[in-house]
């Protein structure tokens, strides 16, 4: 069921910008259109490109915010989320916790 929905109408998670748009819905309660526009603005691309996995691979690598296929020295997990929080201008709960734990704040 999850696969069918993803293929039919899903944004594509970290293959594209699905996780980023989801974060804006969650943290700011933005509706879909507003969330997409916000993310596209932060990434400097068009709303149309948010779901284009070819374009988003380049973008995700450029901002180092994690991708489905890792390469060495690329950010993964928590590291990628540090970069996402900075890029989107939002606090991410686990990132804030991490900072506290290592004495960054």
């Amino acid at each position: 069921m999850a696969v069918t929905h993803e293929v039919a109408t899903g944004m594509g998670g970290i293959r594209t910008a699905g996780d980023l748009v989801a974060r804006m819905q969650m943290t700011k309660g933005m509706k879909l259109k507003e969330a997409k526009e916000y993310v596209a603005g932060k990434l400097g691309i068009s709303v149309f490109e948010l779901s284009d996995s070819y374009r988003m691979k380049e973008i995700r690598e450029q901002f180092d915010i994690g991708h489905v296929l890792d390469r060495d020295k690329a950010s993964y997990g928590m590291e990628a989320k540090f970069n996402i929080a900075k890029l989107l201008g939002i606090p991410i709960n686990s990132v804030e916790n991490f900072k506290k734990k290592i004495g960054m704040i």
């Binding site: 699905g18 989801a22 879909l32 779901s51």
Partner: peptide, 15 residues
Amino acid sequence: KTVSCERGNEGVVTF
């Protein structure tokens, strides 16, 4: 058999 949305109309999925 299966259909999909037009490009640009995709939505977010929560579980």
